[in-house]
Design a protein around this nucleic acid. Structure first.
Lengths: 352, 352
DNA sequence: GTGAAAGCGCTAACAC
DNA sequence: GTGTTAGCGCTTTCAC
């Protein structure tokens, strides 16, 4: 006959007191063995360590956090997990933080500022010691909660004109400007661009900033903005690029150069051109952004603008662990990780 | 003159007691307003809610966890974040869990079983209420820790012959078998495959299972295994496919059909063939796995085997929230989410 | 080098 | 419907 009470109860995990009892020391000594082993006599330490192993003791960090007022969490809010460059930021950051025994608490908002705010609220309940989020545009409530959190805040992937606090990124406007100048210098006559639309809380605001930089430079060069096309909503990907260039070509068959806010769209452009018999780069030159791996592999290989997102993540981690988390009075820092044009074969007529 | 003591101290976040003082009730009433609002008189509730808003109070879940013995965390260990299909599993799971106020604690191990074990140890300190990890192969220490955790464990992305507990996935062996049969039925003479190598703790064990299923079926059909090539190490991607098919073509120019353990490799194969003037599918038929978006966009579009990874993530979430997390005596469940061949244009001679 | 006491901010349990 | 008490499992602080 089964005992429902016993069988439905889960075995309790061992606590620090179980370890102390087994090793015949106080629970404080156990705590020291874990956090400051050199302050414990070697013999005692060994005994405690054995007890820890034999019980399979794992300290409860919720209890530790409560007591020490240090959660060991760093919160990260990304637009999406499903983007190689954001994933790589998370990797770089996570690697650096791990070394200092911090744990990354990752959330994503699907390019929705309202979701960003509600994710932040969830994360705040875990008392992160720092908050990292993609920069520039937020709801007022987000900004206010960030300030009230009283922990370092780092905006990434853009360099806001008026950052909340720290920023590690690059100028998305400059990305667009560089792309436009690149086309203008090479004498293209009908220069276009493709991106997505931002509506209210939803959209890729950094992508849109790239598009605005592109437009600003076209304007400065006395060019028309008619071929700059905002199509669909974020996130963009291969299909987006294919659809958008399809529309653009249908309406303006004379377009001879196009900048896509992401390599993913740019690859879609190249694929759609293959299907339509439009030759890249002879009929249409294409430039992307983000230097995704697929851009290196397609034919022709994609000319793009590269940002070292892995280093970006690492920089954020280093700035946090070396400065912002150590001294809460450090000055707000804006760090530019830079850009690099990668010239491959999707743009006609390289200038020497 | 600045006061270093005051300026270096961070403003303390308001606690439940601050809210109770401001609203003139006991802290327990505040707690009830948050967790069971209907058990509080409407007038009291309003007053408390106002105090919460005006103070910007956010409950500390570490304290709540400690007291309620429920962390609200579900741990997820993935081989990598930088893979669309794993990212989409995380999305599906996260969405379902969020509705029940669970939070996902994500870690990745870079296809390294030793890292999987150490990540698990970190996660265990947060007392997750369930653990989800990619299935089939683990270190003994991992299995032992999982058992000691005393919480539901779900293996995903494969259906192990001897699961630790629950499993939600599909048969990777069957994936390989289907691919081999597909080629054999269509009369290919020189059938190959490409994947990566597993060495010790490191490697893509699910990819290797697909390759072994492929080999088993080739053997059953009396074919040679000489063209099954394990090249490099996980994770595979476009460059991997390009390199691997380069070697295979150099050594065996007569290969007429190749299965890649991932669409990412398969796309690399197609791109390398374009560069070499090898026509796909006329000279070489290519089949992938995973139905990544890029496979739909390339020319020719990629024939592949599709798994609904989003649904997989959701299923895990539903099984957890509806069953395993509710009643810790539920029987271990293995759930097959199934497979589907997507016939596109990269394989010659479709059979009707 | 080690231990005892207090308390982190909540919730469970029970009283009224 | 609301309050009181106790305690979750640790770390901080201070005593020895």
């Amino acid at each position: 006959m089964s005992n429902p009470e016993a069988s439905s109860r889960r075995p309790r995990r061992p606590t620090i007191r179980d370890v102390s009892r087994l090793s015949g020391v106080s629970h404080m000594t156990v705590s020291r063995v874990i956090s400051t082993p050199d302050r414990v006599a070697p013999a005692t330490r060994e005994r405690v360590l054995e007890a820890i192993t034999s019980l399979g003791y794992v300290p409860d960090r919720a209890a530790g956090s409560l007591s020490s007022r240090r959660s060991g969490f760093v919160a990260l809010i990304l637009p999406t997990l499903n983007n190689a460059n954001f994933a790589i930021v998370a990797r770089g950051l996570s690697e650096v933080l791990h070394r200092q025994a911090y744990q990354l608490l990752i959330a994503y908002d699907d390019y929705d500022l309202a979701a960003e705010e509600s994710q932040l609220t969830q994360l705040l309940a875990r008392r992160p010691e720092a908050i990292v989020l993609t920069g520039a545009v937020h709801r007022p409530g987000t900004v206010q909660k960030l300030a009230a959190a009283g922990v370092p805040v780092v905006e990434i992937s853009d360099l806001p004109a008026r950052p909340i606090q720290h920023a590690v990124g690059f100028s998305n406007e400059e990305v667009g400007r560089i792309a436009a100048r690149y086309f203008i210098e090479r004498g293209f006559a009908h220069i276009g661009a493709i991106g997505s639309r931002c509506v209210g809380d939803k959209g890729d605001y950094r992508g849109d900033t790239r598009l605005r930089g592109f437009e600003a430079e076209l304007r400065a060069g006395g060019r028309s903005l008619d071929l700059v096309c905002r199509y669909g909503s974020a996130p963009v990907s291969f299909g987006h690029g294919a659809m958008a260039i399809g529309r653009l070509l249908d309406q303006n068959p004379d377009v001879d150069a196009v900048f896509a806010v992401s390599d993913l769209s740019a690859v879609g452009v190249v694929m759609e051109c293959q299907r339509r018999g439009v030759l890249v780069p002879d009929d249409l030159s294409v430039m992307g952004f983000g230097d995704f791996e697929i851009g290196r592999e397609i034919n022709p290989a994609l000319t793009t603008i590269h940002v070292d997102f892995y280093a970006l993540g690492q920089r954020v981690g280093e700035h946090l662990t070396e400065r912002a988390l150590v001294d809460c009075n450090v000055d707000a820092v804006s760090l530019d990780v830079g850009l690099r044009i990668i010239e491959r074969s999707s743009v006609k007529g390289k200038v020497r």
